[in-house]
Design a binder for these strands. Structure first.
Length: 149
DNA sequence: GCCAACGTTGGC
DNA sequence: GCCAACGTTGGC
């Protein structure tokens, strides 16, 4: 089993949205590295740190789990969608997504500031300067440490 | 709103 | 294939 960190802007899609929906496709990713993680490496049952970005207090808000492996992101074919990609075709889709299911919302958000203050977490891409990839692999140690903070 | 860092595009 | 220009991310 693998562990991941996935960023989302809570104004657009937060842990609360996921809690209400229970399951949701992780659509709208338009970065090749992030896509490749979803398409090639994420497996059903993998655990996810749900991270809130670009908001008042950025940090890990809870846990999710991969409930369906890679399949084409339908928003790439939708002309009305912000994520529409004219170069993608049904025969040759360019963007893929996974489905995630709600696991838990933390009682207290684990803020980026907190994560930065923990020495054992200093290797995470999240705390590296200039790292802005929306999906990152996380080690088992990092995952379990964060989920116990 | 600013800005550093990084990714993507497109001309050559 | 290089690289300048441009766009986006995301913390502050």
């Amino acid at each position: 089993m693998k562990y991941w960190l996935m960023k989302s802007e809570p104004d657009v899609f937060s842990i609360d949205h996921l809690k209400i929906k229970n399951k949701s496709g992780w659509d709208g990713v338009r970065n090749y590295q992030a896509r490749n993680f979803m398409r090639d490496e994420m497996k059903k049952g993998d655990m996810v740190l749900f991270y809130h970005s670009s908001c008042e207090e950025p940090g890990v808000a809870g846990l999710a789990r991969i409930s369906k492996e890679s399949h084409p992101d339908p928003t790439q074919f939708d002309k009305k969608s912000d994520y529409y990609d004219p170069k993608a075709t049904l025969e040759n889709p360019r963007w893929f997504m996974v489905e995630v299911e709600f696991v838990e919302k933390f009682d207290k958000l684990i803020s980026l500031a907190t994560i930065k203050s923990v020495k054992e977490l200093s290797g995470m891409p999240l705390v590296q300067k200039g790292s802005r990839l929306s999906i990152n692999p996380v080690s088992e140690k990092e995952f379990s440490l964060i989920s116990t903070l």
